[in-house]
């Protein structure tokens, strides 16, 4: 029995980091557009005009990679079972120091919901972004609404990403390794995703 088990293939990992990179590029280039308070971030790109260009390019990359990532994982993230329901009822045990054990598959419901949210947000941000890209081609009310929704989805996405990063790093030590090397320690897999571990390794944890 190996101490490690493969969680993500190299392709999956690369895709994730493309999404991640484009997301943070969007974040940094978009901050200045969101509010004049963050105007300083434009300097990262050599001015607002460039930032907009970067934002547009990163937007295209993010839009397609993020949706592709969702589609690749859509089976794993879009079905919920009885164990997932229990997880949700107990908030995954995150609100208590008490140890909680759930018989979770490859993804827990939080991860699934996050994936679904990001996919939806990608769609919405992408479509509203398109209207904002060329405002003079569309009715004013559509663009005005788009500006609001784009801002709203941006805020929501950033908040979710904060949680995602926390849980994937210090919140759950060992998790990040799945995205870094692709392998996770068996102990981690047994601990967080026993059902998946069983399926993947054939052992009973």
């Amino acid at each position: 029995m190996s101490n490690y088990i493969e969680r993500f293939t190299a392709g999956e990992r690369v895709l994730h980091w493309i999404v991640t990179a484009s997301f943070f590029t969007l974040l940094l280039s978009g901050l200045g557009l969101f509010s004049r308070l963050f105007n300083g971030y434009f300097t990262l790109f050599g001015g607002g005009g460039n930032a907009i260009m970067v934002h547009k390019i990163a937007g295209i990359v993010f839009f397609f990679s993020s949706l592709y990532m969702f589609l690749k994982h859509r089976r794993d993230v879009s079905t919920f079972d009885e164990d997932d329901r229990r997880w949700i009822e107990q908030r995954g045990g995150y609100l208590s120091r008490e140890e909680a054990h759930f018989n979770i598959g490859k993804y827990n419901p939080g991860q699934k919901l996050f994936a679904i949210f990001i996919a939806a947000a990608t769609l919405i941000l992408g479509v509203t972004g398109l209207f904002i890209w060329a405002p003079t081609l569309f009715p004013r009310w559509i663009v005005q609404l788009s500006l609001m929704i784009h801002g709203l989805m941006f805020v929501g996405t950033v908040m979710f990403v904060v949680v995602h990063v926390y849980l994937a790093t210090i919140g759950n030590p060992g998790t990040i390794e799945a995205m870094l090397y692709g392998d996770v320690r068996s102990m981690w897999a047994k601990r967080h995703h026993p059902k998946w571990y069983k399926e993947a390794s054939g052992e009973n944890p």
């Binding site: 995150y94 120091r97 919140g171 030590p173 102990m187 981690w188 601990r191």
Partner: peptide
């Protein structure tokens, strides 16, 4: 959360 409830450490 980190300082109150804390991370979910994996028992070695």
């Amino acid at each position: 959360h980190y300082v109150t409830i804390g991370p979910k450490k994996i028992d070695e």
